[in-house]
Design a protein around this nucleic acid. Structure first.
Lengths: 145, 145
DNA sequence: CTAGGTGCAAATCATTTGCCGGGGC
DNA sequence: GCCCCGGCAAATGATTTGCACCTAG
């Protein structure tokens, strides 16, 4: 596969060799690898690549929308004294988490129970948005939590 | 509030003073605090408490189902070369993440758009279950990723 | 007496960043 | 020349753990 033109008009980034290899590996598998798994995968083809490069490129690729991040919405765990099933809504700007004003839907899992070979225990649904405070402030500063 | 009998028949754990204070604070607010926010909150009432104690008790309380963890399904970020909207399913035992065989539902956000004062950007839905491999193995070893 | 609990400090783990030399345009 | 880049190692930040003592049952 030749070096792809994934950045299109965005001339900010170039498709470098390291970046290309990381992208190839991530596309080759469907295991949703972690950064260090990718590091090991790419290292087989480019032994001197460093973790820093892997992380930096994963950041560039996901920011550019070429790949997607899964999990870890924020760096810190949060805790909730309410153990009833309910959903949350998280502000992309300030990182605040509030309860979502919507009922928990048990039936969300129904469709997948037939389609999947997993034993379904439950589901987590989280809405992503901008809270009124940040919207009002026009707060475009980088997310904190 | 007197020391609660939250552990019921589970005599493994006692309701200690620190544990009680942590629980009171977490229940007092609806901000879904992080561990260090709770540490600061509890420290106002018990200045010599340590972060280690806070983390240990949050673990006990959430394991016992008295409180709930939000966010951070796993310690590591995962990456996906498929940027189409799709959901994932995560195995509680081995931590593996696969694509969920179910369509992404745009309308999930509809109800909340009216009910919430957030500007809704999107949602994340993740199913939790046990993968066939772990089920077959009867693998009850602790989750890895 | 035993097992759980605590404060404290050190360790761990994932991720980020500073430095610095190198190459593309 | 300017800016992106990559390797390397050091720094950071959240969380976990080892240790020594303490206390309830």
């Amino acid at each position: 596969m030749p070096s792809e033109d994934i950045f299109g008009s965005d001339r900010k980034y170039r498709m470098t060799h390291q970046r290309q290899l990381i992208l190839e590996e991530i596309r080759r598998v469907n295991t949703h690898p972690t950064a260090d798994e990718l590091y090991e995968m790419v290292r087989k083809r480019l032994p001197r690549i460093s973790m820093g490069t892997v992380y930096r490129n994963l950041e560039v690729l996901s920011t550019s929308g070429v790949i997607q991040k899964i999990g870890r919405e924020s760096s810190q765990m949060r805790f909730d004294g309410n153990t009833k099933n309910h959903y949350h809504i998280r502000c992309t700007h300030c990182g605040k988490v509030e309860d979502a004003p919507i009922e928990s839907a048990e039936n969300l899992g129904h469709g997948i129970r037939d389609a999947s070979d997993y034993t379904i225990i439950g589901h987590r649904l989280e809405f992503i948005g901008i809270c009124p405070v940040c919207r009002k402030k026009g707060d475009l500063s980088h997310k904190k939590a």
